[in-house]
Design a protein around this nucleic acid. Structure first.
Ligand SMILES: [Zn+2]
Ligand SMILES: [Zn+2]
Ligand SMILES: [Zn+2]
Ligand SMILES: [Zn+2]
Lengths: 163, 163
DNA sequence: CCCGTGTATGTTATGATATTACGCAAGTCA
DNA sequence: TGACTTGCGTAATATCATAACATACACGGG
């Protein structure tokens, strides 16, 4: 109880939802506005990612959300799966961590390039249509049908490289 | 004893070794020929990767090498680290697995693209200088100094897509 | 020859990341 | 109503990776 009117944390997240299946279970009263309204868990997880200034691991998210009642890894992983499917979060394969999308929701995920600083932990997300096109051509030549593409560069960011 | 002349397993792996530090500990009698001669563990691990037709996990390697006396994950991970450093093996970040290099040892690792079939498990390695150049330009614009670059596409290979 | 240094090894224990299996609750729709 | 879908909660387990410590061998200088 005390769920319909609880102004302290206001999980009012909603996204544009290119995968708009519409019905998505009980929504705990979030304000739906054209896009998909996130559930409480999804909104909590996205909130952590958005206010972090670096990628966060699933267990990092879990620890951050224990005060909110999140207790098991699965609750985090399930929310992450959904957020990634919606394009509002990304998984960084090379460091087993997650970030919120820095753009307006990545729908063409194939051209998303991440630059991960190994010193300060900063993750910069960029879209590069040309790289995307080249990889697409490469796949076409190999008759490969790509579903998900990961491009991650690890090194030093501008600040840490001192340039 | 019986170390200098032991023809039964003949771990005669040797690579071109762009990181030629020369002296690299006791080599169990491998035939060094200009490049770096691998140690027994390194040679065993590389052997598993080379004869596999798909990426292998570290624990898969471990299981495969138990008959040869390998017992602990660390023995495998250490060998893998060295093989990757030498450019004769690669780590596939998105599936936590390893493959032997399909080229003649990747020295410019930045342009290596992997196409991973999610149905049959096949991993195809390609070098794409153009993609590499684009990513390099992108990094330059962002003043980012890349150390390692991962490019992995997951989807369906030509055979599995039925094209 | 002895010894310091670098590299590889072997073993145990632990940490970090991710999934399976089960049951339940709530909304949608015929 | 009843089948179906989606999400939630919990416990247990699976999978992936590293820390810490001790030992062994090659090399080269003193
Ligand atoms: Zn994005
Ligand atoms: Zn940095
Ligand atoms: Zn290669
Ligand atoms: Zn296939």
């Amino acid at each position: 109880m005390a769920d319909a009117a609880k102004p302290d944390l206001a999980h009012g997240h909603h996204v544009q939802g290119h995968a708009a299946h519409d019905h998505q279970g009980h929504d705990h009263g979030g304000a739906r506005a054209g896009g998909v309204t996130l559930t409480r868990n999804q909104s909590l997880v996205l909130g952590i990612l958005e206010k972090a200034d670096a990628p966060v691991t699933a267990y990092g998210i879990l620890d951050a959300l224990r005060p909110e009642g999140i207790r098991a890894p699965l609750q985090v992983y399930r929310a992450l799966d959904k957020l990634i499917e919606l394009g509002v979060a990304h998984r960084l394969e090379s460091i087993n961590a997650f970030v919120s999308c820095q753009h307006d929701g990545c729908h063409d995920v194939a051209g998303t390039v991440f630059m991960l600083c190994e010193k300060c932990g900063h993750a910069e997300e960029m879209a590069d249509a040309e790289t995307s096109a080249h990889l697409g051509a490469l796949a076409l030549m190999a008759r490969f049908k790509p579903a998900r593409t990961t491009i991650e560069m690890r090194g030093l960011c501008a600040a840490c490289a001192g340039t």
